[in-house]
Design a protein around this nucleic acid. Structure first.
Lengths: 107, 107
DNA sequence: ATTTTGTGAAACCAAATGATTGCACATATA
DNA sequence: TATATGTGCAATCATTTGGTTTCACAAAAT
């Protein structure tokens, strides 16, 4: 059972959940109202997101508020950095320039 | 059969492939040498990466060179932007400051 | 012309995934 | 105290996934 952030954000429902609770904590029921699948299905998604620490819980009476663990999202950013280095590189920008000149020359 | 970039980068082997060919195009055989799985397994990964246009092919005789389609990687970056907005926000930085003050006060 | 090499595709299989249903249990509310 | 509510967990199931094996075929080498 793989359980890392990349596997976690692979599912579109989980990505939607992350967006939903990004700015404000929500209970499982409130979250589930936004989807077509059952409350239990959403609950399983929340467990997966919790297990890889992309979200955190805060108990309040019998309600549980889930919120984003924004620092964990940075790990995706860190992985992405290696590619950002490429698309921001001079070489790549030169490529684009040459490509642009070529297509314009064809007109 | 879902086929989007997030599902594509969910697999660790595929992420490794992307890193491997990021700066220099490689043939399937050359790529496969870096992994324990079979050439055919790598070939399937390449197909998935191709289908969601994260990589591109360039035929050269009977060899095929695969290289990164770096612009496609930007889509992950676009999605991540909404969370970057949070971790760069004043609110979040204030949270961290308060947290820091609290832990220091405990010492 | 025959053999070797580089590659993709199909068939098959075990394991993982995402969903549903049914249940358990703690906390509110009547 | 009895009932309703909010939630997690286990069992089950169809589908997807990632891998291997086998085959096909075109391009290069002999």
């Amino acid at each position: 059972m793989r359980r890392d952030i990349f596997q976690a954000i692979a599912d579109p429902t989980r990505r939607a959940i992350l967006t939903l609770i990004a700015w404000q904590a929500m209970t499982p029921n409130a979250i589930a109202e936004n989807f077509n699948s059952s409350r239990q299905a959403v609950s399983k998604h929340l467990r997966i997101l919790s297990e890889c620490e992309l979200i955190k819980q805060e108990h309040q009476g019998r309600e549980i508020y889930y919120s984003l663990e924004v620092d964990k999202m940075k790990e995706v950013d860190v992985w992405l950095a290696q590619f950002r280095a490429i698309w921001e590189s001079k070489f790549n920008q030169l490529d684009e320039l040459l490509e642009k000149m070529k297509t314009q020359a064809e007109k």
